[in-house]
Structure formats: structure tokens, C-alpha cells
Simulated scan of single mutants.
Amino acid sequence: MKYWRDITLPIPEWFKTWVIDVSKPFPEVEQRMSLVIDLARMSIKNGGGPFGAAVFNQNTGELIAPGVNWVVPGKSSLLHAEVMALALAEQALGSYELASHGSFELVTSVEPCCQCLGVLMWTGVASIVCGARSEDAKAIGFNEGPRSLHWERELKQRGISVTREVMRSQAVEVLQSYTGEIYNSQLQASNWPK
């Protein structure tokens, strides 16, 4: 029998020394998205995927936790930018339920894939702000999985507001600059709902 250990998910080494003035709030949605797009650029530069995300206090603009796509270097399909940002926010606040600590917003450089969409529904975020569209990620070869065509409406029914296409052209530019590995592209989507 194998010895099972605690699950530890790696974060990038450069993340640990990332310099940002966390005392400075990000009151405007464009400021938040700009930070997230910069995270996506830095992720590419440091060997990660072309996606960035962050959790902010919706009322104060305080950065709670950043995230980048670290799937390939971290050797874990869980390490999407949104999942990392949400997990680090939960860790920072000491709870799996963010809503019990205030009103929080997930800002992501690209609309969530099926995995990230599922995760964010259970975290207690009040809103999600997206840059590029899912189609933009698909256009460079990423497989976004079987998302409901009505994902936006379904989130709103759960009390999660959705804002799309904030700084989309800048987010698309980062996606298009990516020359790294396109993981999960071999998975067949032919049997997935359209």
C-alpha cells in the first residue's frame, strides 16, 4: 500500500518574492484587471500559462490573493489561475467560505473554464470580472471543457454578478503572445454539449 500524504500545491518561486504594494487598494475594475493581465504576462515570462486571476475585497479594492496558471511547471491540473487565487484567498482568510468574511470579487484575465467555474460557485465570491472570452482561449488551442451555454445566468441565479470583456483586447494580446505548452488539447471535445 502506498503512503498517502497531505496535498501540497506548489506556487511559483517568483510569486514568493513578487513585489506589490498590498497596502494600496485597487478601487477601479480596470486597475484590478490590469494587475491580473500583468500577472498573466509574468506567468508566461516565468514558464507558466497565459492566465492570471486575483481575489479582491469588493468594497475596499484590497488585494486578498493573486493567482497564475501553473499547471505545467507545477505538474497539477488543479493549478489554474482562478483556483490558485481562490485557494490562497481562503488560506489568507482562514475559511473555505469567503462570504462569511465580506464581499469578494474574482478578477480573471479569461472567462473561467469548466473547472474554475465549478470551483468559484462554492467559494462565496459575490462577483466575477472577466477579460478575454472563452473563445479567445480556444482560438490559441486551449480546451475549456464542457461549460453550460447559460453559465453567466446560472452564476447570477446563485447571487454572483458577472462582468465580461473588461480590457478584453489587452487580455487577448497576452493569450496570443503565449508560445508554451497547450495542455489538455488532446482531450476530445466531440461528445461534449455545445
Score class of each variant (00 low, 15 high):
L79K: 09
L79I: 10
H80V: 15
H80I: 14
A81P: 13
E82Q: 05
E82F: 06
V83M: 14
V83Q: 14
M84C: 03
M84K: 01
A85E: 09
A89N: 12
Q91R: 13
Q91D: 12
L93E: 11
L93V: 06
G94I: 13
G94A: 14
Y96S: 08
Y96Q: 10
Y96D: 11
E97A: 12
E97M: 15
L98P: 01
L98W: 00
L98R: 00
A99I: 07
S100T: 12
H101R: 15
G102H: 14
S103W: 04
F104H: 08
E105W: 00
E105D: 01
E105H: 06
E105Q: 11
E105T: 09
L106A: 09
V107Q: 02
T108K: 03
T108R: 02
T108W: 04
S109K: 02
S109I: 09
S109G: 13
V110M: 08
E111H: 03
P112K: 06
C114Q: 15
C116I: 10
C116L: 13
C116N: 13
C116K: 06
C116F: 08
L117P: 00
G118F: 09
V119C: 10
L120G: 11
T123S: 14
G124P: 12
V125W: 05
V125M: 05
A126G: 10
A126H: 06
S127G: 11
V129R: 03
V129T: 15
C130P: 04
C130E: 11
G131E: 09
A132W: 05
R133V: 15
R133S: 15
E135N: 11
D136S: 09
A137E: 15
A139C: 04
A139G: 09
I140S: 14
I140L: 08
G141K: 08
F142W: 03
N143F: 06
N143V: 10
E144M: 14
G145N: 14
P146C: 09
R147G: 03
R147V: 10
R147P: 01
S148W: 01
L149M: 12
L149G: 05
L149S: 05
H150M: 07
H150I: 01
H150F: 04
R153P: 02
R153C: 00
E154D: 09
L155Q: 02
L155V: 00
K156M: 10
I160R: 03
S161N: 15
V162I: 05
T163C: 04
R164N: 09
R164W: 02
E165I: 00
E165H: 01
E165M: 02
V166N: 10
S169T: 15
A171S: 11
A171P: 00
A171W: 11
V172R: 07
V172P: 01
V172C: 02
E173Q: 04
V174M: 03
L175Q: 03
